[in-house]
Simulated scan of single mutants.
Amino acid sequence: MAPITEKHTAAPRKRRSRQSLAPWLFLAPGFAMFLVYVIVPVFQSMWVSFFEWDGLSPKIWIGLGNYIELFDDEAFYTSLKNNVIWLALYMLAVPAGLMIALFLNQTVRGIRIYKSLFFFPFVISQVVVGLIFSWFYAPDFGLFYKLIEWVTGSQVAILADEHLVTYGIIVAGLWPQIAYCMILYLTGLNAVAPDQIEAARLDGAKGMKMLWYVVLPQLRPATFIALVVTVIGALRSFDLVSIMTSGGPYGSSRVLSYYMYEQALSEYGYRMGYGAAIAVVLFAIMMIFISGFIWKMWRDEQGAR
């Protein structure tokens, strides 16, 4: 039997080091782009929020001046209130997506056609969604406008009513968001263990009991992702507001992301520092929600071990 030499032990060690290094080499470009395009801009926005700056002139240090001004800004509170409404109502996309996914997960005749119809809102642009619903709500010729007039005898211009406009835009946003949650749950349902379903059926479980005690626990990863993307979608609801109302009427449909744009980049503002302060507040709200979801999921996984 030949003695084990240092040369023989060095080869496996070198191979193991290469195998451990390979994943990091594949991840490095993504990490670099995330650092350059996400992490660095976040800290730059925080830094700019302490200045009065129009984007061209020299920056003027004002410390917490922009944040102090936010507390006296009525438009900021309107935008914040609308974001809270978006968050509350946008959460309807998660259970709605789950119910549609449960329906589409069946093997019935024509199910592929149904899947295509429900999947369609996800693949079209938010701009197209905004235009479709703008026509849907349009006075004189919009389908919704005509329907309300026919049913109630009164005329309601959703996008021109400062009390209804936010809800009208949210309905437009829910259409593709429900489709997105549906896709996540369909993917999750494909991974549900069939042996657990059969065991539950043998024990007499069916209907809501089957869903609550057997299916939903296995859909926790899909639910987590659906909640996170829904919260992010509600907080960054810029596209539809810009396309459908431009923040109107009278600024009543503004959200924080659109108000940030108005202050920093539109002809009404060019106040980069103030816009950055709004962005920091929005980022903080987003991080609170996402951190809460991550903490809850981590605690559930620890408890399951």
Rank of each mutant, 00 (worst) to 15 (best):
R13H: 05
R299A: 14
W298C: 02
G55F: 08
Y268N: 12
T245E: 04
Q19P: 03
A32C: 10
V48N: 11
Y259L: 13
F103A: 15
V241E: 07
Q44H: 08
F26A: 11
V231N: 11
M297K: 08
S125D: 08
Y250G: 15
A2G: 12
T152Y: 01
W212P: 02
S116L: 15
L147A: 14
L56I: 13
F120Q: 08
G153E: 09
A234N: 09
L70G: 02
Q19S: 09
N190I: 05
K14F: 03
V151L: 13
F120T: 11
M244A: 10
N66W: 07
K59M: 15
M91T: 05
T245C: 06
V123M: 13
P217L: 00
A284S: 13
W61R: 04
L227D: 03
Y259D: 06
L80A: 15
P95H: 10
S266Y: 11
Y77V: 01
A279C: 07
G63R: 09
A2P: 12
F283N: 00
A157W: 12
P121M: 07
A2E: 14
I294K: 04
N83F: 01
K296D: 10
I290H: 03
A205V: 06
T166K: 11
L189R: 04
P121Y: 03
T245Y: 06
S57N: 11
K59Q: 15
Q19V: 10
G97P: 10
F133W: 15
V48K: 11
M33L: 15
V281H: 06
Y145E: 05
L186T: 08
A179R: 08
W175G: 01
P121C: 07
Y180T: 10
F144W: 12
V229W: 09
K209W: 07
I68G: 09
I60G: 02
A279P: 02
L25F: 14
M272A: 13
I148A: 08
K115Y: 06
P41V: 07
Q196E: 02
A160S: 14
D73R: 07
Q19E: 14
F283Y: 11
F141A: 12
R109C: 00
Y145F: 13
W53S: 05
E301P: 01
I124R: 06
R254C: 00
I148Y: 10
V255H: 05
D54Y: 06
